[in-house]
Computed example of a mutant assay.
Amino acid sequence: MTPFRLGLLALLLTFALDQASKLWLYFGTDLVLTQPWRFGPYLDLVVVWNRGVSYGLFQQEGGLGRWLLVALSLVAAAGLAVWMHRAGSRLLGLALGLIAGGALGNAVDRAAYGAVFDFVHLHAGSWSWYVFNVADAAIVAGVVGLIIDSLMPERGRAKAAQAANPTDSAPSV
């Protein structure tokens, strides 16, 4: 599978899983009325409407901020798709697809509801992680993939060069 196709598959699966989980939890359960749902000492499902970006930064109460964040997400996803089309490794394609799919999933929430629906809360004792969703987890996994791919630049460049000029791999006589 080419890096672009793998990235596109990751984008579509991320978007579908993100939206399906949010729609089911919000409309298909009574989580809103009965939260939190505790799953052991470390995990709760809760309803949090995030009007900002990562970690709740840049909270937007007005319509202008909401639509600017939607536009920014769409532009970022388009840019990531172009980069994904040029990706030289499957890891890079996968990572970009995860990030773009997460960006689109959260953009749909902002456009539809004015905020992103977050619901997974991890905690231990007095330590508490921010509340997130499938899109957020995919974005984090994608960033980790970008970092790992960037630490292997020779492999990525060698594959890209070989794909661009396959006759260079034949030994000279």
Rank of each mutant, 00 (worst) to 15 (best):
A10M: 14
L80N: 05
V120G: 03
P166D: 06
P41I: 12
T14Y: 00
F58W: 11
V75T: 03
D118G: 04
D136P: 08
W83Q: 11
A141E: 03
L72K: 03
F117H: 07
A164Y: 00
L96T: 02
L91G: 09
A135H: 00
P153V: 06
D109E: 01
D136M: 02
G156L: 05
V48F: 05
A137M: 04
G62A: 08
A160W: 03
G105Y: 04
L72S: 12
Q59A: 14
V143L: 03
R155S: 11
A163Q: 15
A135W: 04
F58P: 09
A137Q: 01
H85A: 13
L64P: 00
L146T: 02
L17Y: 01
S169E: 09
G63A: 14
V143Q: 04
V144E: 00
A111Y: 09
S150Y: 04
W24T: 09
W37V: 14
G40C: 05
N133I: 04
A164D: 11
T34K: 14
A170K: 14
Q162N: 13
V53T: 14
L17A: 14
V131Y: 05
F119P: 01
A141W: 02
Y55R: 09
V120W: 00
A115Y: 00
K159C: 03
M1K: 14
T29W: 04
A161T: 08
Q162V: 11
G145M: 03
L33E: 12
S172Y: 01
G102P: 07
A111L: 06
G56T: 13
A163I: 14
A124P: 04
L33K: 13
R157E: 10
L104M: 08
L33R: 14
V140T: 15
R157N: 08
W67F: 11
R90S: 13
A111C: 00
V53R: 11
A112K: 12
V131L: 01
L33D: 10
S73K: 05
A95I: 02
L11K: 13
L80G: 13
A170M: 11
Y42A: 15
V47K: 10
R38W: 00
V116Y: 05
L80M: 15
G52P: 09
V70C: 10
E61Y: 08
S150F: 03
R157P: 02
L17M: 13
R51D: 05
A71W: 00
Q59W: 00
P171L: 04
S89N: 06
K159P: 02
I139T: 05
W49F: 12
A160L: 13
